[in-house]
Simulated scan of single mutants.
Amino acid sequence: MTRRIITKRPYRHFKGKLYYVHDIVMHTETREWMVSYQALYEPYGMFVRPLDMFSEEIDSGRPDNVTKQKYRFELFNGQ
Score class of each variant (00 low, 15 high):
residue 58 I to G: 11
residue 31 R to M: 11
residue 19 Y to D: 02
residue 11 Y to T: 08
residue 32 E to G: 06
residue 59 D to T: 02
residue 35 V to A: 04
residue 39 A to H: 05
residue 3 R to F: 03
residue 77 N to W: 07
residue 51 L to F: 13
residue 72 R to K: 14
residue 23 D to R: 11
residue 66 V to G: 10
residue 41 Y to P: 00
residue 71 Y to I: 02
residue 2 T to P: 10
residue 35 V to Q: 07
residue 67 T to K: 12
residue 77 N to G: 15
residue 49 R to Y: 00
residue 32 E to H: 07
residue 61 G to I: 02
residue 54 F to H: 01
residue 34 M to C: 10
residue 5 I to T: 14
residue 38 Q to H: 01
residue 56 E to F: 01
residue 72 R to I: 00
residue 15 K to F: 03
residue 46 M to V: 10
residue 36 S to D: 14
residue 68 K to H: 15
residue 57 E to T: 09
residue 21 V to F: 07
residue 2 T to R: 12
residue 17 K to A: 11
residue 30 T to M: 07
residue 25 V to W: 00
residue 23 D to V: 05
residue 78 G to I: 11
residue 47 F to C: 05
residue 6 I to C: 01
residue 23 D to H: 07
residue 69 Q to T: 00
residue 49 R to A: 04
residue 60 S to Q: 11
residue 49 R to K: 13
residue 40 L to R: 09
residue 31 R to Y: 08
residue 31 R to E: 13
residue 4 R to P: 12
residue 30 T to A: 08
residue 18 L to N: 04
residue 70 K to C: 03
residue 49 R to W: 03
residue 4 R to T: 14
residue 65 N to P: 01
residue 6 I to T: 15
residue 25 V to D: 08
residue 37 Y to M: 05
residue 69 Q to E: 04
residue 76 F to T: 02
residue 55 S to C: 09
residue 2 T to A: 05
residue 74 E to R: 04
residue 1 M to I: 11
residue 29 E to Y: 12
residue 31 R to C: 08
residue 4 R to L: 09
residue 41 Y to T: 14
residue 50 P to S: 11
residue 56 E to V: 03
residue 14 F to Q: 00
residue 47 F to A: 12
residue 49 R to E: 14
residue 29 E to Q: 13
residue 69 Q to N: 07
residue 66 V to I: 14
residue 37 Y to D: 03
residue 31 R to W: 02
residue 32 E to P: 02
residue 62 R to P: 00
residue 53 M to L: 13
residue 45 G to C: 05
residue 9 R to L: 10
residue 76 F to G: 08
residue 73 F to K: 09
residue 44 Y to G: 12
residue 34 M to L: 15
